[in-house]
Write a protein that binds this DNA or RNA. Structure first.
Lengths: 319, 319
DNA sequence: CACAATCGCGAGCATTTGCCCATAGCCTGA
DNA sequence: TCAGGCTATGGGCAAATGCTCGCGATTGTG
């Protein structure tokens, strides 16, 4: 049964998949798996945990937990949402992304299963990245996946949260990265960038997206924009003073969900936020700090769909 | 949306789902779950295992295991299949249905996700039943699910392997059970049965199915037909002597996959086997005993798709 | 109202699992 | 060819898990 294949990597993941299968699907103990694959118990354990850490095993929970359904209903009614998912929270790890990542992957999967061509536009960020990791491998050459913003720092280095490339390679779709930094150095540079044919085309695709999935960033000293180095602490403080409430694909908006007219936004290179009326625009966010940003975005109808967790949903509804 | 609250069953499953989520998705230990849900460690353990046994947690393995892919390719080429899935085997539990059930559920799900109306025709049997249990809850009122055969014994009692009703309630589709026994008492009774308007309509739906999923039964003393009491040991032996090789929705066929002209078949009430050219007809079967039956069915093109496991696939290819 | 059957609960214990560590094989580069 | 480092392996152990048993509560029944 245990065959030695040639490329060590493939064989190893193959064995990991097999071990994971025997463990999770067939319900063997690791001892039994070890015997069946002809390795030691410890190796079997390593294979199983490799299968988990490589995300070969995907766990999905199939029960409408009443509390989550109630919260979904309330949010949907209050903000008129086209897509809404509320997943359980783990009170001790309030920022856990796995849950919303799985839910978001399910939303993506639904669109990907369509036989007709669909355009899917993505933002960036940890949540988006986690979501893409939850997608199964598929073969969907009919779709196009397009990034709404660049993933470069202004010095040309890449941020690690690039979702588009990873997603495209997982599902086998054509993809359109956004070949620009996140923010331009100044308005002049931005004009030049936006003049490029490729950029225009990518932006145009974004406006036609059948599904848009974006992270929602808060404003503050722990904000992604600040932590990932797109903004200095001083700029951030200035924005806070001007009443900034949140940020989507780097576009900073106020508590009413209006994109602000500020120095920073004038340098943002991302595609303009989509107008309501086209495909669903789904925000992906959990966390205490993000409630204000999410509420503002919903309020201003910058997003018309939301994937979040119980704790955040409760916070959104409270006032 | 939230159905009858405060029924202990709902609450209990709800808690089980939550516990399962905290365990499998959030990665808590059962001790932590116990604290968070305010129950004892043992209760938490029970909730988690309830979530598993009630099939609330679905595990999916997302890696193309090389050996399975090789076998799929070989089978597909040899028999010209429209659908083929080979899942790993557990050598010590060769008849384990979970694996093919998951794979078959994925095939069904793909069809169910279509926004256009689809007709799905099902057989019966343990494998079909296990498959349906693996389906997630969905809301697909656009589809129709139709049974290709009755699930009644001739005395009117029901067999427990009814897949259609269960599936329809899980996915919220219209369904058409087959309101007849599996076999009629005699040809005259059969004529009367088939004269009924409802039966005609159901059979007509079967011929238009976009996807047909059936179990493949072997012939022999352990055959489903025999074990489930549709045939006496003597009838079975007579069929074996006449060269019967297998059975699909109770239609008995020979080693070349030709439906036999025999006394038993003249009493079978099931919808006639679909002709090639319409939607895929997928057989679902594992087990040493079934290899002959599967090979004959593939050979005679009674089915043009197959979901099986490694061990069975190997046996099918070994001349 | 009393009794019996059933169910859920927690204690205790055997099994299983995860992880650290020492070791042995293997590759790299001089 | 050999030293040095790196990775995979299996032993051992502590933590986590699953299971059985006896108890008490709850429900159904005569």
């Amino acid at each position: 049964m245990s065959q030695s294949r040639f490329t060590p990597e493939t064989t190893r993941l193959d064995d990991a998949a097999r071990a994971g299968w025997l463990y999770y699907v067939a319900g063997n103990t690791q001892d039994e798996i070890a015997k069946k694959l002809g390795v030691s118990r410890q190796s079997a354990q390593r294979l199983v945990s490799l299968a988990v850490s490589e995300k070969l095993v995907k766990v999905r929970l199939d029960h409408p937990i009443a509390r989550c359904m109630d919260l979904s209903g309330a949010l949907s009614e209050r903000f008129g949402l086209r897509v809404i998912e509320v997943v359980p929270s783990d009170p001790s790890v309030p920022e856990l992304l796995t849950g919303i990542a799985i839910a978001a992957a399910a939303v993506l999967e639904k669109t990907l299963k369509s036989p007709e061509e669909k355009i899917i536009a993505l933002g960036t960020g940890r949540a988006l990245r986690a979501c893409v990791e939850q997608l199964p491998r598929m073969d969907c050459p009919q779709h196009r996946i397009v990034s709404r913003l660049g993933n470069m720092m202004s010095d040309g280095s890449a941020t690690p949260y690039n979702a588009v490339i990873r997603m495209a390679e997982r599902v086998g779709a054509r993809h359109y990265p956004y070949p620009l930094p996140v923010v331009a150095r100044d308005e002049e540079e931005l004009r030049v960038m936006h003049g490029q044919e490729a950029v225009r085309h990518t932006m145009e695709l974004c406006t036609r997206a059948d599904l848009t999935l974006v992270g929602v960033g808060q404003i503050g000293l722990n904000a992604p924009l600040r932590v990932d180095g797109f903004m200095t602490a001083e700029e951030m403080e200035a924005l806070m003073a001007e009443g900034a409430a949140g940020e989507i694909t780097s576009w900073v908006y106020d508590a009413d969900g209006r994109v602000m007219d500020c120095a920073f936004n004038r340098r943002v290179a991302s595609a303009p936020l989509p107008v309501p009326g086209s495909g669903p625009v789904v925000g992906l966010a959990v966390g205490k700090d993000k409630a204000g940003a999410i509420r503002a975005a919903l309020h201003g109808r910058l997003i018309n769909g939301l994937i979040t967790d119980e704790a955040t949903a409760e916070r959104l509804l409270k006032q």
